[in-house]
Design a binder for these strands. Structure first.
Lengths: 134, 134
DNA sequence: CTCTCATATGAGAAACGATACCAATTAGGG
DNA sequence: CCCTAATTGGTATCGTTTCTCATATGAGAG
């Protein structure tokens, strides 16, 4: 029974996500790899990212109205995206949001999950805005 | 000073959102209008939906990994999307989630907003699943 | 070590949602 | 009833992602 081969591309993609500390998106991961392995295809990056997410090795960070980002940190935490530079960062809730099912009027829905995404301005962009008025 | 003309297209689009009780997306709104006004263009639907959102006349409901939906209900509430049929419905939190800034470790970010989107299975799809095993 | 073949890759096309562009139309003030 | 800037319809383009398919390759069998 042959399945799930270990390829050098998959290794490189996992490595890229693991080394990045900035929640890269697929394009950024492609850019990180293409210098070492110029023949890699975008399709391969997307395919393997999906596999790695399915296998639970990396986490997909969806944001609103933009490409998915990918996270090496697997534990439960939330994310904030800079409205200017689109960078994604971790964000922690000191007191976790508890959304128990008896706090939701579901109108017959069976609630499976929720996603909580923050938007804001990152430290770098705050500085830029302070310096010059744009 | 000429600005913000009232066009029949804009009227039809507002009407469609107002009459729909199912948080339609742009394509569904286009479908609703095209029977009465066959010459309308998708571009006009997108343009006017953006205008109506800017003017505060309808609310944009972003979901993760799918087209935006539009809501005639303007007050603060949340949404749930069916993972099967992609239908969007209102959902109310009996006790509102309070995300005060001193409950968030922001790592230097200036938090502006957050979006909370639920996923689940709608009543119709629950029935379908109960009936036949897929 | 080689053969085999199912799985993965690379390259490009296509899907999909949304926006940009531009010539033609039109709302609505004068 | 004009005039003209705002809006429209049609199409091209964009950004992100998936699909297709011929070629290449990992890894188990011999």
């Amino acid at each position: 029974m042959k399945e799930k081969r270990q390829t050098i591309q998959k290794g490189l993609i996992w490595e890229a996500v693991s080394e990045a500390d900035n929640h890269p998106n697929a394009e950024q991961i492609y850019d990180m790899i293409v210098s070492k392995h110029p023949s890699i295809s975008r399709a391969t990056v997307y395919r393997n990212l999906n596999m790695l997410v399915d296998e639970g090795q990396v986490k997909r960070v969806r944001v609103l109205g933009g490409p998915d980002h990918f996270d090496r940190t697997l534990g439960k935490h939330y994310h904030i995206q800079c409205t200017h530079c689109k960078q994604v960062s971790d964000i922690e809730l000191l007191e976790d949001v508890i959304l128990s099912s008896d706090n939701i009027a579901t109108h017959g829905y069976k609630v499976e999950s929720y996603e909580l995404v923050f938007n804001g301005i990152c430290p770098d962009c705050q500085k830029k805005y302070a310096a010059n008025t744009q």
